[in-house]
Amino acid sequence: MPMKKNELTLFNRLDVLFLSIPLVVAFISLSLPKVADNSYVRVYINGRLVYEQPLEKDSVWRIESGGKYMSTLVVDGEKRRVRLVDSDCPLKICERTGWVGSGGIIVCVPNRIVVKVEGKEKSKEIDIVTW
């Protein structure tokens, strides 16, 4: 195609700056140091804390809401990491997030589930289940 004056090009020098902005933001946030004393696994449904346990304790917990099975939380105490398995959501993004450790977050949007590995004990706030 002959180049016309007002025609768009596939790539130009301004793109280098442009491409770098989201990448710089992404890499800076990925390289931020994680807090080491995050030792509690918490499960929130609809923004409400429903489950809490120490990261050191091996366990498998079925996440249910209103009698409906949604997903299963697996805690690997030895390696201090958690993941969601057997989720009933369509895209399984929560499962594909895989294992997360200290400071990690897993989200399952269809089930409104948020799993966090964070801070210290606050089990008094739990309204549904305790370990």
Binding site: L19, P22, L23, V25, A26, F27, S29, L30, Y44, N46, G47, T97, G104, I105, V107, V109, R112, I113, V114, K116
Partner: peptide, 20 residues
């Protein structure tokens, strides 16, 4: 808005890289 938490922001860095 769906999960009533800012937790999904944790996915943003990887989303931005893949998005590019």
């Amino acid at each position: 808005l769906f999960v009533k938490s800012m937790a999904p922001a944790a996915y943003l860095p990887l989303l931005l890289i893949i998005g590019e």
